[in-house]
Simulated scan of single mutants.
Amino acid sequence: MAAEILEAIMLVCFGLSWPMNALKSYRARTAAGASWQFLTLICLGYIAGIAAKFCSGSISWVLAVYFINLACLAVNWGVYFRNKKLDAAEAAEKQAAA
């Protein structure tokens, strides 16, 4: 039980950063400085954690925290692709004006 609580604390600490990151990126309106590779690695890490829960048979309430974090990462992906689109539109405007 203590291990589950510690794991959940770790996941909540990481998980709280994703909404803050999404909001910061949304306000920035650019994908500059964002990394799809980083987001991919984080997603793979959470998926591995979920798989480990299933493989070890230790499915518990902590699994829900993994899925919440993945949902927050999905929002980050959405903001990333939105910002890439905004960057492309701005580049096209600059090219048309030149």
Results as ranks from 00 to 15, higher is better:
Tyr66Trp: 11
Val79Thr: 07
Ile47Arg: 03
Asp87Asn: 07
Phe67Met: 11
Leu63Tyr: 01
Ala32Ile: 10
Leu6Ser: 13
Tyr26Ile: 06
Tyr46Ala: 01
Ile42Val: 15
Ile5Tyr: 11
Met10Gly: 02
Ser60Arg: 05
Arg29Glu: 15
Gln95Tyr: 09
Ala51Arg: 02
Leu16Met: 11
Glu7Ile: 02
Ile50Asp: 00
Val79Gln: 09
Ala31Trp: 12
Ile5Pro: 00
Lys24Ser: 14
Asp87Cys: 09
Leu23Asn: 03
Phe81Glu: 14
Ala51Glu: 07
Phe54Pro: 03
Ala2Cys: 01
Ser35Val: 02
Leu39His: 12
Ala98Met: 12
Cys43Asp: 12
Ala48Trp: 03
Ile50Ser: 05
Ala92Trp: 08
Tyr66Leu: 01
Ile42Cys: 13
Ser56His: 03
Phe38Glu: 12
Arg82Ile: 09
Glu7Cys: 01
Leu41Pro: 01
Ile59Tyr: 02
Phe38Trp: 11
Ala88Thr: 10
Leu41Arg: 14
Tyr66Met: 00
Ala98Ile: 09
Glu4Thr: 02
Leu23Lys: 13
Glu90Leu: 14
Ile9Ser: 03
Ala3Asn: 10
Cys13Val: 04
Ala92Thr: 11
Ser56Tyr: 03
Cys13Asn: 10
Cys55Ser: 08
Gly49Trp: 00
Ser17Thr: 14
Ala22Pro: 02
Met10Glu: 03
Val65Cys: 00
Ala89Val: 11
Ala88Trp: 10
Lys85Phe: 11
Thr30Asn: 12
Val12Tyr: 02
Ala34Cys: 12
Gly45Ser: 11
Ala52Lys: 11
Phe14Arg: 10
Phe54Ala: 12
